[in-house]
Amino acid sequence: MKPETFDPASLHTTVLLHEVVEWLRPAPGGRYLDGTLGMGGHSLAILRTAGEKAELVGLDRDQEALALARTRLAEFADRVHLFNLPFSRFEEALDEVGWDTVDGAVLDLGVSSMQLDVAERGFSFVHDGPLDMRMGTDAAASAEELVNTLKHGDLARIIRAYGEDPLAGKIASAILKARDKERITRTLQLAEIVRLAYPPKMRHTARNHPATRTFQGLRIAVNRETEELERYLQTIVGRLKPGARLAIISFHSLEDRAVKHAFRDAAKGCKCPPHQLHCTCGGVPEMKVLTKKPLAASDAERDANPRARSAKLRVAEKLAPDGDDA
C-alpha cells in the first residue's frame, strides 16, 4: 500500500473528531501531542483549528500508518514532528524536539480500520490471514506464538482479564485441544475454534461473533496495551502545561476504567489511605476532570461508523501549581 496512492481518510473514519477538537480548544502557537496518530485525522483537525504557528508531535508504532499520516499532514509538514514509537514513549519524542510541555494531548486507543480490514495484519476474525496482531515491530511475540505456546492458565487469564470473556477457561481448553492436532496459524482457524467452544445456544444468541473477546484479549497481550496505557497515564500529567487538556478515547471497559481512575486520582491529589482521617502526604490536585461521565458518539456517528458505538471520551485539564484553574 503506497501512501501516494491511497487517501488515508478513505481507510479509516476518525472517531469523535468534533468532540475532541471542541474540548481540546486548539489555539494559534500551541503545541500538541497525538500519541496514537493513526491516519492523522485528529491531528489534521487540531492543526487546522489551531491555525497559525501551531505545532504537533505525532506517534505511531505502525510504520505504514505513519507513512499515510505523513502524506495527509503534508500541508503542515514544517510544523509536524512524527515518530515511529508507541505512545508510552512520548517523552522521548518531546525531548527530541525540545518541548518541556504541551498545550494539549489526545490518545485514541482504538485499532484502526486499516489494521482490522487488512487480512495480512492478523487482527480480524472475519477475514482470513496469518495470526499476527502486532501493531509494530516492537511487539515481542505474535498472537500465533501466544496461542501455540502458553499454558492453559496463562491463556485463560489473557482471555478473561483482557477479553473479559466468562468462558475463558473453556476457550483455552478448546485451543489447547486443537493445537495438539495441528499448529494454529490463521485467524479464521482460531475464530472457528473459539466459536465451537461456545455452547450452541450462546452461539445463536450472541450479539457479536463469539471470537470477539478472545481476539481482543490476544491483541492487548501481544501489544502490551495495558502496560502502555499505565505508563502513559503515570507520565503525561507532568508534561502538560497548566490549562492544557488531555482527551482520551477508549473502546472497552478495561481501558475506560484505567483512564477514569487515573483522572480521579490526579484530581483528588491526596494519596493517603481511605481510612486515614487527616491527610499527611501533602498531595494537591493536579487535574480537573471535565467530563464527569464519558462522552459517547452521537446517533448519527454511530450509524455512519459502527465502530464508534463503543467509543468513550474522557477529558481532564491540568491545574496551575496552586491547584486553581489556569
Rank of each mutant, 00 (worst) to 15 (best):
320 A>E: 12
13 T>N: 05
51 G>E: 11
134 R>M: 04
109 L>I: 09
243 G>K: 02
46 I>S: 07
286 E>K: 15
220 I>R: 12
22 E>P: 04
253 S>R: 10
229 L>D: 03
227 E>V: 05
141 A>Y: 09
4 E>S: 15
72 R>W: 00
268 K>W: 08
91 E>R: 12
99 W>A: 09
144 E>H: 08
299 D>A: 11
207 R>C: 03
313 L>M: 10
67 A>C: 01
320 A>W: 09
193 I>W: 07
309 R>H: 15
107 L>N: 03
177 K>E: 13
40 G>H: 05
109 L>A: 10
135 M>L: 13
312 K>F: 04
140 A>E: 13
265 D>V: 12
148 N>D: 11
144 E>M: 10
153 G>S: 14
313 L>Y: 09
55 E>V: 08
225 E>G: 10
194 V>A: 11
129 G>Q: 04
215 F>N: 04
105 A>W: 10
38 G>T: 10
263 F>W: 07
293 K>D: 07
236 I>N: 00
283 G>P: 06
172 A>T: 05
14 T>M: 02
150 L>H: 07
47 L>G: 03
21 V>W: 02
197 A>V: 08
204 H>F: 13
195 R>A: 12
10 S>Q: 06
281 C>V: 07
180 D>W: 06
123 F>L: 02
154 D>E: 15
112 S>C: 08
2 K>Y: 14
325 D>S: 14
270 C>W: 13
98 G>I: 11
250 S>C: 01
83 F>D: 00
135 M>R: 09
93 A>M: 01
154 D>K: 14
152 H>G: 05
31 R>K: 14
13 T>I: 15
178 A>H: 12
141 A>Q: 13
7 D>T: 11
314 R>Y: 13
324 D>L: 13
242 P>I: 15
120 E>S: 07
198 Y>T: 03
116 L>D: 12
286 E>R: 15
96 E>C: 05
185 T>I: 13
53 K>M: 05
304 A>C: 07
210 P>H: 08
106 V>Q: 03
1 M>C: 11
66 L>M: 00
219 R>I: 08
153 G>Y: 13
36 T>I: 07
60 D>Y: 05
106 V>F: 01
30 G>A: 12
88 S>W: 05
75 E>N: 04
195 R>C: 10
161 A>Q: 09
105 A>D: 03
304 A>V: 04
184 I>W: 14
173 S>A: 15
37 L>V: 02
196 L>K: 13
260 K>G: 02
155 L>A: 07
184 I>V: 14
293 K>S: 11
113 S>W: 07
114 M>C: 00
85 L>I: 01
269 G>F: 10
33 L>E: 06
205 T>M: 08
179 R>A: 15
166 P>F: 08
275 H>A: 14
178 A>R: 02
119 A>C: 06
89 R>L: 06
313 L>C: 00
